[in-house]
């Protein structure tokens, strides 16, 4: 495999982890966040501190990244999750930018110039392993009572409350798990680039993650996977059109959202069972058409 292709696969694998986390928050719990790059930044810097300053193994760095991002999200959640949806969204935007600015001005970790010399621990293998773990854990979560309670909050908050669901607690759970995923993605990104800089975690990155989740389809894990792969590859494939690249990218996203307003996989999950059900429906439709044709023939 060429190292260029391998590089894109690794980037989409890293993006995927952050997207899976955001998919839980936005697609299942119904909360929009424009500050997830902030959690990635916290993860990237925490992991880099572990591996470079304390010379700890990479997996410890990843665990620390998840824990630090989760901890930060818990604090943010305490302060902002009582806000209604739109206000929460604005609060996350402020949080993401605040994290970036703090890192910009904190010279101890390289400040705005960035932090070079992070060991290249991230490999295709450990990305893929974490991707698989990430998908399995998320799929298990959304198909449990905890996941159903989050979905209930998204669907109808008042009804969820009178059905005995502590909506604050489940929003918090979605936020913390989602931030932990973003933290892990940040750790992987830092140890892939071997260099981190606050600018990498700006609002543009947060917006990109949200676009992928919506593009893939809210409430669909397979949609998020597909979205992360397609939207990481697309800009690379568009290198041919040079400076028009991002314009074409934008148009492609708009085109698909018009064609499929609920995203690529909105509300549909790609599992062996759903694929079999889909083919069974196709067969039934075909059989029905054949019956009808036979009847018409008989009628004549």
């Amino acid at each position: 495999m060429s190292s260029y292709l391998e590089g894109i696969i690794m980037l989409s694998g890293i993006n995927l982890i952050a997207v899976l986390g955001l998919s839980l928050l936005t697609g299942f719990a119904g909360l929009f966040s424009f500050g997830h790059a902030g959690f990635m930044a916290i993860g990237a810097y925490s992991a880099a501190i572990c591996t470079t300053i304390f010379k700890l193994p990479f997996f410890v760095g990843i665990a620390a990244a998840a824990a630090a991002a989760a901890g930060a999200s818990w604090l943010i959640g305490r302060a902002t999750l009582r806000l209604k949806g739109d206000y929460f969204c604005i609060a996350t935007l402020g949080f993401g930018e605040a994290i970036r600015l703090i890192l910009d001005n904190f010279q101890g970790l390289g400040g705005a110039r960035g932090w070079p010399g992070i060991p290249p621990h991230t490999t295709l293998v450990n990305i893929l392993i974490l991707d698989v773990i990430g998908v399995v854990l998320l799929a298990n979560l959304v198909r449990s009572r905890h996941g159903r309670n989050m979905i209930a909050v998204r669907e109808e908050e008042l009804a969820a409350q009178v059905a005995g669901i502590n909506t604050f607690k489940y929003k918090m759970l979605a936020l913390v798990v989602s931030a932990a995923y973003a933290g892990v993605a940040g750790a992987l990104l830092g140890h892939y680039m071997t260099f981190i800089q606050p600018k990498m975690f700006s609002m543009v990155k947060s917006t990109e993650l949200t676009i992928i989740v919506i593009f893939g389809g809210l409430g669909s894990i397979s949609g998020s996977v597909l979205g992360a792969v397609v939207l990481t590859f697309l800009p690379e494939l568009l290198r041919a059109v040079d400076k028009w690249r991002l314009v074409v990218y934008g148009l492609a996203v708009i085109g698909i959202m018009i064609g499929r307003p609920r995203g690529l996989m909105g509300g549909f999950e790609l599992t062996p069972k759903s694929v079999r059900a889909h083919f069974a429906r196709l067969r039934e439709a075909k059989a029905a058409r054949a019956d009808q044709a036979a009847e018409e023939k008989g009628g004549l």
Binding site: R148, E155, E156, A163, I165
Partner: peptide, 20 residues
């Protein structure tokens, strides 16, 4: 106020959460 986009079964299953 139902969980509109969920199936009938999932609406009831969600509310059963307190028994687990």
């Amino acid at each position: 106020r139902l969980f509109k986009n969920l199936t009938v079964f999932d609406n009831v299953l969600t509310a059963c959460h307190a028994s687990a």
